[in-house]
Write a protein that binds this DNA or RNA. Sequence first.
DNA 1: AAAACTATCAACCGCGTAAGT
DNA 2: CACTTACGCGGTTGATAGTTT
Length: 364
Amino acid sequence: MGRAPCCDKNGLKKGPWTPEEDLMLINYIQKHGPGNWRNLPKNAGLQRCGKSCRLRWTNYLRPDIKRGRFSFEEEETIVQLHSVLGNKWSAIAARLPGRTDNEIKNYWNTHIRKRLLRMGIDPVTHAPRLDFLDLSSILASSSLCNPSLFNLSSLFGTQALFNPELLRLASTLLSLNNKQDKNINPEWFNSQNLQENQLCSNQVQNQIPPLVQPNINHDQFQTPIPEGFSMQPNVTNLISSSSTPISTQENVNTSAINPSSGLNENVAVSQPSYLDCGSNTNNPSVVAELPENSFFQSLLDGYSDQVFGFDSVISTPSSLTPLNSSSTYNVSSTSSTEDEREISYCSSLLKFEIPESLDINDFL
DNA sequence: AAAACTATCAACCGCGTAAGT
DNA sequence: CACTTACGCGGTTGATAGTTT
């Protein structure tokens, strides 16, 4: 037995609403309230089905609807909520006053989702997409800038890209962030490396409560973690990173994002130099400072030039000075351009470190 | 200037479910 | 308890505006 149609569609109009229809609907609801949507069009004199009237009212005509571009704060909220709720647009909309589920859904599909994909982040799981990365390019580029780094591409050639072991390695590398405060191999973490490889300031974790990531497939992190590494697939908080510069040399204890992943609950993070491109909207500026020839510098070059193809993300010539040695620049936290928002996004994503003395053979 | 392509978003469709009978 | 009805939600479509070639 088929489902009964919501209304008799014979003779009912479809398609875009005219201003006259809008006016009729508004006038009726202002006088009588929506009441029964099924009966509303008949009572209001509209040649529409109730469903269409409800949609038009809730998504467009409702007086409390906020229209116009989404603010950065709203966008932050959407991504954070989506990481927890998934495609529960109505639930997300309930936490964004004045925004409708339809509007949020459209905005996600047309803006946020694409941006995450461009950054190599799976918009479903909010985790890095390794299939999106050209590992060889990353490492080749990195090695050019820092000859001390191993050159995977020269070691293994382009076939390395199809080697599942190397993909696992990439998984690990991309997931690596902060070293554990125990079991550290001192050879991997000499003070210079710590100075140079600390990529971003630690996020102020207590600003945003840890988010549950029910959708993440943790299989991608099954690669055994080498001694001295910890893994922090820190993507969920990619937008919530603090822009408060942490310039102290102290270690900062933080909590891993995902307690269910079996990853480190507490990691000690060294904070030598700082790179903080986060997006705290309460803070008027975002500060980035990189040591010359740092690993992060080279890695950023690799990402921006070859992997994501988003030169504009890291170094938009028209608006931003490229990251270079000892350069410091400010990005307005009220940034509204796509590129500037991506900067904020990628700042937290690109948080991992690789010891210079890492022996690739240990992985193979 | 025009065609082709892309992005956006209002609106539609079908399904799940709560409420009513 | 079974069935019907209405509502709300999420996925998808299609018209249109904007951009590129």
